[in-house]
Design a protein around this nucleic acid. Structure first.
Length: 185
DNA sequence: GCCAACGTTGGC
DNA sequence: GCCAACGTTGGC
């Protein structure tokens, strides 16, 4: 049994969208990065547990958990010429891109903003917190997964304890750059 | 909006 | 196979 973190922009597919989906289950399409693809295709198995992360959100945060319910299989959205994730090199005969199915685990009673996670010693090695970490599918250690779950059930730390933030920030809402991404890649 | 960090592309 | 140019990601 393995642990993972999946990123999604909430404007594209939030954990609330997952909660509203039939059977609270969805296929995780749109990953177009080879490293992430390899994990989807080769490593993720039914029963694996997933941290659900909202990227490009305010604030970016781990917001809940999910469970892998179907191992990697070809991502058919790569075959849709009208879709955002079309790749002419991907065919049914020789697929390039893969996806898994996930089902909602729980929505945390509170979000865990990345700034707060940066201050947690148990998460020091976490892939998400490394500079330049951009993978939309990341392996997570069991100890990290458990530390996150524990944190989610604790009250939010006092304002001063959360990691630094710039005094002022522009609102990020609607800051669309490039084509909309469903789930990253 | 900025920009660091990373992945991909393509000329050679 | 190198590597510069370019595109993308994503926190800030």
């Amino acid at each position: 049994m393995n642990y993972w973190l999946l990123k999604s922009e909430p404007d594209c597919f939030s954990i609330a969208d997952l909660a509203a989906a039939p059977k609270q289950t969805t296929y995780w399409d749109g990953v177009r990065n080879y490293q992430a693809r390899n994990m989807l295709r080769d490593q993720m198995q039914p029963g694996d547990l997933v941290l659900y992360y909202h990227s490009s959100a305010e604030p970016p945060a781990v917001v809940g958990t999910a469970k892998v319910v179907k191992a990697g299989y070809p991502d058919h959205t790569a075959q849709d010429p009208k879709g955002d994730h079309y790749d002419p090199k991907h065919t049914a005969m020789s697929p390039i891109w893969y996806m898994v199915d996930i089902q909602l685990g729980e929505i945390f009673p509170r979000e865990l903003p990345i700034g707060e996670l940066r201050g947690v010693p148990a998460l020091k090695e976490m892939e998400l917190l490394k500079t330049g970490s951009r993978l939309s599918v990341q392996p997570v250690r069991k100890s990290e997964y458990e530390a996150i779950l524990k944190l989610a059930k604790q009250p939010a730390p006092a304002e001063s304890a959360t990691a630094k933030k710039p005094a002022k920030r522009k609102a990020v809402a609607g800051a669309t750059k490039g084509a909309p991404r469903k789930r990253g890649g």
